[in-house]
Design a protein around this nucleic acid. Structure first.
Lengths: 350, 350
DNA sequence: TTGTATGCGTTATCAA
DNA sequence: TTGATAACGCATACAA
């Protein structure tokens, strides 16, 4: 990659400025600025005159200049691991809607599930003057958290609840949620379990989900070390490949739990390719309850996450914080299990 | 919605500035600036001293100030109709990757398929100083195009090719592509066709696709007015509802073409609910060839669009334009038809 | 090679 | 209620 910044762009036609509007309306720039920001502080007559000039010239305030002078951008940044799928889309959409209805703009960046890239993106958003940040998950370098602290930048973590983490969060307990699903699978009679996980090294949510299944196994008197775990990249194909690996092990799992719905759909496809019936031969479960879970064949048993509520409330918390009405405090949301046909009794169980 | 901007945010801890670095390294701010932007123009000794100060202070340039002074942001904006699904995700991802490797940043906004919101978002991106814009489709108010012209803002349209449109574009001919699929469906013996379309009023791509099917019908000697068209919102459920409406008409269509894959998957679901076999009782086709098309049951016959190539080349065109090496010229990409099981012979045909 | 000085377009302080 | 004017943080002619 060639990160050299481009040399010299053609200078573009300059837009009308505050000064243009001011001279056009025979007032000072200060008055024009007030008309736009605190209209009640300017008398009606001049205000209409100014606004007429604004319309006539097609004036729009220069965002960068405004940000520089006001030291505020009314912009909130979010960094999501990926845009290529629907896991975060619904929640972020709700986040954006709520922000928009309060006059805030959303800046979206993507980290491609990379810790380094996330750090870079955080720097970028900070440099752009974001008033607050929304991040996904708790795993990140201490230096970044310190930077956020020093800058006193309101930062909220979503898609994970962990009051012990250094940053306040809104979300669900990934371990608890997955443990619930694990219990259910065990109730269905499964004793040989496989797990297809996202990479856990830089992903606390993935770690917690693995931990959840093991917890459920322990509580059921099983040996948690008996869980066969495969870590893989994100994607349907990856889920398929991992599934085949799992099914090659002995004893063969009768149920394969997946860290997310996309991996689970991949597992389902692989099962079909291998001639295995779901759930008669093998049960498969997901996590997230994205639209895909319902489309899957058979429909996926999965953990339902309140995406939209999470996004909406995250926005409200950040806004209240920015308006000085509150302090960020972690909020725990509840998940529930959607039982669908991809989960069945273990083979040999009536 | 309450669009009142928030009153007063707490002033945040101020970040180190160029001046801080300068005094720390005993040089002028100009030298620091040069170290960052044209390192070759400063002698090695001072450069190392400056860079050390940069690191020590954790200095990061203020983006807004830089944009204001340089009158350039190295930022390109894109406005997509929606983030809630995968239609644009792959192409935009490629667009972003290509931009990133050339030192440009992508600003993403979403219009929710609304013409007014798109206009607003364009204004926002312009106000933020985007160096160039990528838009989806040709349909938009003349005033907006004029604004772009006056500002001399390089603007490229994607997901549609139309050399006659006011803005240069990269993409495919939606009419031609859909006509090709229509021909194929007719070759399969279908004479009663239904079409589920996105709303066409503010969407030239949707219009062109409807036109394409009618064109294929005309060429086959059929009456294009015989095409039953239902326009609907975006979403799987909408596709399902529209399908049921179509199947209630007489004579019942033996093939239902859909304006995109998501609608087609909805149609498939509705068919299943109605107890209709695909393709034995009714054929269903999509458009876009997103991942969903392969997951569908049965897999969807659809028009394959070179999303990633489109994104990558769009980025290159814009970058070359910005670097003064070229002028934006429309590029036509080819689509091809992926024939899968959702398309079969018309009932009663051997 | 480096420094000085000015301007970018806006907000905000302080007087008038 | 309005108007000068000084920041805001950086880039860039121009000078040294």
């Amino acid at each position: 990659m060639d990160h050299t910044p481009p040399s010299h762009a053609k200078r573009r036609a300059s837009a009308p400025t505050l000064a243009d509007v001011a001279s056009h309306a025979n007032v000072s720039t200060a008055t024009v600025s007030r008309c736009l920001n605190e209209p009640e502080r300017v008398v009606a007559e001049t205000r209409t005159r100014v606004m007429a000039a604004v319309v006539e010239l097609g004036y729009a305030p220069n965002f960068n200049a405004r940000a520089l002078a006001a030291r505020r951008t009314n912009t909130i940044g979010v960094i999501i691991p990926t845009m290529e799928n629907a896991i975060f889309a619904r929640g972020i959409q709700a986040f954006q809607e709520e922000l928009g209805s309060h006059g805030f703009t959303l800046l979206i960046a993507s980290s491609s599930y990379s810790e380094e890239l996330e750090a870079e993106q955080i720097q970028t958003l900070v440099a752009r003057g974001a008033d607050a940040l929304l991040l996904i998950g708790h795993h990140r370098d201490t230096k970044i958290v310190d930077l956020l602290r020093r800058r006193e930048l309101p930062t909220l973590v979503a898609w994970a609840f962990n009051p012990a983490a250094p940053l306040p969060s809104i979300g669900f307990d990934n371990c608890e949620a997955m443990a619930g699903l694990g219990q259910l699978v065990i109730q269905y009679g499964h004793r040989n379990l496989g797990f297809i996980s996202a990479h856990t090294a830089a992903n606390d949510r993935a770690r917690d989900r693995v931990r959840g299944v093991k917890l459920a196994m322990s509580e059921a008197g099983m040996d948690p070390n008996g869980l066969r775990v495969i870590e893989t990249d994100y994607g349907i194909e990856c889920g398929a490949t991992a599934f085949k690996q799992l099914m090659a092990s002995t004893p063969r799992p009768t149920a394969v739990l997946c860290g997310n719905d996309v991996l689970a759909v991949g597992a389902q496809r692989a099962a079909k390719e291998m001639g295995l019936a779901v759930p008669a031969d093998v049960s498969i479960t997901g996590f997230d309850d994205i639209e895909l879970a319902l489309l899957a064949d058979p429909p996926l048993t999965t953990v339902h996450v309140p995406h939209r509520e999470m996004g909406r409330r995250a926005a409200r918390m950040l806004i209240e914080m920015l308006e000085g009405q509150s302090v960020l405090q972690s909020v725990k949301l509840e998940t529930d299990i959607r039982v669908r046909q991809s989960l069945g009794a273990a083979p040999g169980i009536g």
